[in-house]
Design a protein around this nucleic acid. Structure first.
Length: 492
RNA sequence: GUCCCCAUCGUCUAGUCAGGUCCAGGACACCGGCCUUUCACGCCGGCAACACCGGUUCAAAUCCGGUUGGGGACGCCA
C-alpha cells in the first residue's frame, strides 16, 4: 500500500475553533495510525477575509493541542499558477466555459427564485455561447468568470463515503459552478482539488457540510484525469439549539484558545473532542495518545451530528460538563511528573513559581500536587483554590470564614495558642500535629472539628480541602504557625 | 423551493451492516447512600432513551416503506 497522505486545510478567517480542531484531530489520528503524512495547507484564497493573526492563531492552537504535521504550512495563494493552469486546461478542453452573467443579475435571479420558492441555481445562460458571441462580449470589455461545464449525462454520479456509505446525485441536479472569479483568481472548489492532486492526498476527512462540494469535486477530478482520494465526511458539531457552532455566533467558548486559557490539559481536550462523533465500539472513553492512534478508525466515525453541550450562564459548568470531567480525570490520574510542568506554567504566570520546586523542593512540590489535585477541575485551580500552598497572599473565602471561624469566638484566642504549641513541636509530622490538636481540643472541652475546620479556613482560605493534617505538613510549620497567629485579624 | 444526510437516556454514545443473548449497556450530568474533622475523590445504588405509523418475520432498536423532526448544501466564501 502506498503512503497515506492527508491534509488539514483551514481557511484563516478566524481562530481555530473546536470543529476545526476536531477535523484536524481526526486527520492527524488517521495519519499517525497509517504512518502517513499530514499536510497543513492554509487556504487563503479569500484575500478579503484572510488574516495573518488568524494563521498564527490556528498554528498556535494546533501546537497547543499537540497536533503536528509533516509538510507545510503551504499557502494556497502560492500555488495560484497551478490553479490558473488547471482552469485554462479545462477551458481549452471544453470542460469549462466563460460566463458573462453579472453578479447583480445572478443575485437578482437567485433572490427571485428563492422568493418564488423556485429552484435556485445557475440557469445556464452562457453555457452554449458561440465562439463569436464570446469574442464579441470579451471585446466589448464585459467581465467574465469561468464555470465548470457539468457533463450532460443520464444517471447518477457518486462515491463511497467511508462514514456515510454510498453517496449519489443526479447529473442534472448539479449546477455549473464557478471555478475562476472575474478578476482571474480561482475559487475554492478548483483550488482545493488541484492542491489535493498535487499534494497526492489519499484521504479527505472533512465535515459533512462539504458533502455537496464533494459531488462537484468528483467531476473536477474526472476532468483533470486524476485518481480519487478516499472521502470520509464526519458529522458536524452543533450547539444545544442544534445550530452549527461558529466563532461568529458562539464566540470564545468554541475557540481552542479558550480551553488553553482556562486550564485544560491539551491531551484531555483531544480526548474529549475525539468522542464527539467517534467511539471505539466499546465502553472505553479515556485513551492514552498511542492507544487512541491505534484504536481510531474511519469506519467508526458516527453518521449523526453531535451536540456541544455548552449552556450559557450555567452556574456550575463553564463549558461542556463532559469536557471538564475528562480534564479532571487526567488532572487526577496522570503522573505528577507530567502534571508538574503544566502547573509550573500556571505558577510562573501568576508569579508564584520557585526554582527550588524543581530541585531541592521537588519532592515537596510533587507530594503537594498529589495532595491537592483530587479536588481540582482545571490547571487554573492550582493558583486559585490552591494558592495558599504556594503563597502567603491568598484569599479567605467569605462562607467558611463565617461558618468555621467567626461562628466560634473562642478561636480568636485558641488558634494563636495552638500556634505556640505547634511552634514548639520538634517534629512537625502528621501524627504530632494531630495529637496536639486533639489534646488541645480536649483541653478546651470543644469538639476537635471546631479546631480542625477553623484551622483549615485560616490556613488555606478554603471551606474544603484535603485531610487537615496533611495540609499542615504540606504548608509547613513556620507558615502554619504564622497564619494561626494572625487569626485575630478576622475578628476585627 | 430543490437536493443530500441524519434520528437510542438531558448530553456523548454501545448495540443496527450478519434480527432473538436488549422489557436496551457505558460515560457525563442529576438524585440517594457509604466513607469522613470539611469538601472532594473513591465505592455502592437510583432516575432516564430505541421519534411516529405501517410492513416483513415465529421474533425488529436492528430489515423495508412512509410520516415527522433535525441538520447541511444550493456564493465571483472556504
Amino acid at each position: 500500500m502506498t503512503e497515506t497522505r492527508l491534509r488539514f486545510p483551514p481557511s484563516p478567517t478566524g481562530y481555530l475553533h473546536i470543529g476545526g480542531a476536531r477535523t484536524a484531530l481526526y486527520n492527524w489520528l488517521y495519519t499517525r495510525k497509517t504512518g502517513g503524512k499530514l499536510i497543513l495547507r492554509i487556504e487563503d484564497t479569500d484575500t478579503e477575509r484572510s488574516t495573518k493573526d488568524s494563521i498564527d492563531g490556528i498554528i498556535e492552537g494546533l501546537n497547543w493541542l499537540g497536533i503536528d504535521w509533516d509538510e507545510g504550512p503551504y499557502f494556497q495563494t502560492d500555488f495560484s499558477d497551478d490553479h490558473r493552469q488547471a482552469a485554462k486546461r479545462l477551458l481549452s478542453e471544453g470542460k469549462a466555459y466563460q460566463c458573462f452573467c453579472s453578479k447583480e443579475t445572478l443575485d437578482k435571479k437567485r433572490e427571485a427564485a428563492l422568493a418564488a420558492k423556485q429552484n435556485v441555481g445557475y440557469d445556464g445562460t452562457c453555457r452554449d455561447l458561440a465562439d463569436e458571441e464570446i469574442a464579441e462580449k470579451q471585446n466589448s470589455g464585459l467581465p467574465s468568470v469561468i464555470r465548470f461545464k457539468v457533463p450532460t449525462r443520464q444517471g447518477k454520479l457518486g462515491y463511497n463515503d467511508c462514514v456515510l456509505g454510498r453517496i449519489e446525485s443526479s447529473y442534472d441536479e448539479i449546477d455549473d459552478f464557478v471555478i475562476v472569479r472575474s478578476n482571474g483568481s480561482p475559487l475554492y472548489l478548483l483550488c482545493n482539488v488541484v492542491d489535493d492532486i498535487r499534494d497526492r492526498i489519499s484521504h479527505v476527512i472533512r465535515g459533512q457540510d462539504h458533502m455537496t462540494n464533494t459531488i462537484k469535486q468528483l467531476l473536477l477530478y474526472e476532468a483533470l484525469e486524476a485518481p480519487l482520494p478516499v472521502f470520509a465526511h464526519m458529522p458536524l458539531t452543533l450547539d444545544t439549539k442544534k445550530a452549527k457552532i461558529s466563532k461568529r455566533s458562539h464566540g470564545e467558548i468554541v475557540a481552542v484558545q479558550f480551553y488553553r486559557d482556562h486550564g485544560f490539559i491539551p491531551w484531555a481536550f483531544n480526548n474529549f473532542l475525539v468522542l464527539l462523533g467517534w467511539s471505539p465500539g466499546n465502553d472505553q472513553e479515556i485513551f492514552e495518545k498511542q492507544e487512541l492512534i491505534e484504536t481510531f478508525t474511519l469506519e467508526r466515525i458516527n453518521k449523526s451530528s453531535s451536540i456541544f453541550n455548552y449552556r450559557k450562564n450555567d452556574p456550575k459548568f463553564f463549558t461542556d460538563p463532559k469536557a471538564i470531567a475528562i480534564n479532571e480525570h487526567y488532572l487526577r490520574s496522570m503522573k505528577v511528573e507530567a502534571l508538574a510542568p503544566m502547573v509550573k506554567a500556571e505558577l510562573i504566570a501568576d508569579g508564584l513559581w520557585e526554582d527550588e520546586y524543581e530541585t531541592t523542593r521537588q519532592e515537596w512540590f510533587f507530594s503537594t500536587l498529589e495532595l491537592i489535585r483530587d479536588r481540582f477541575h482545571t490547571l487554573k485551580d492550582f493558583t486559585t483554590l490552591g494558592r495558599a500552598y504556594f503563597s502567603d497572599e491568598y484569599a479567605v473565602e467569605e462562607k467558611p470564614l463565617k461558618k468555621n471561624v467567626l461562628k466560634h469566638p473562642g478561636l480568636e484566642q485558641w488558634l494563636p495558642e495552638l500556634a505556640d504549641k505547634y511552634e514548639s513541636l520538634a517534629e512537625f509530622s502528621l501524627e504530632e500535629t494531630e495529637r496536639v490538636a486533639r489534646e488541645f481540643a480536649a483541653d478546651k472541652d470543644i469538639k476537635p472539628g471546631v479546631i480542625i475546620n477553623g484551622m483549615r479556613t485560616v490556613v488555606t482560605g478554603q471551606l474544603a480541602g484535603a485531610s487537615m493534617f496533611d495540609i499542615l505538613v504540606a504548608i509547613g510549620q513556620e507558615k502554619v504557625v504564622n497564619r494561626l497567629r494572625e487569626t485575630p485579624r478576622f475578628y476585627k
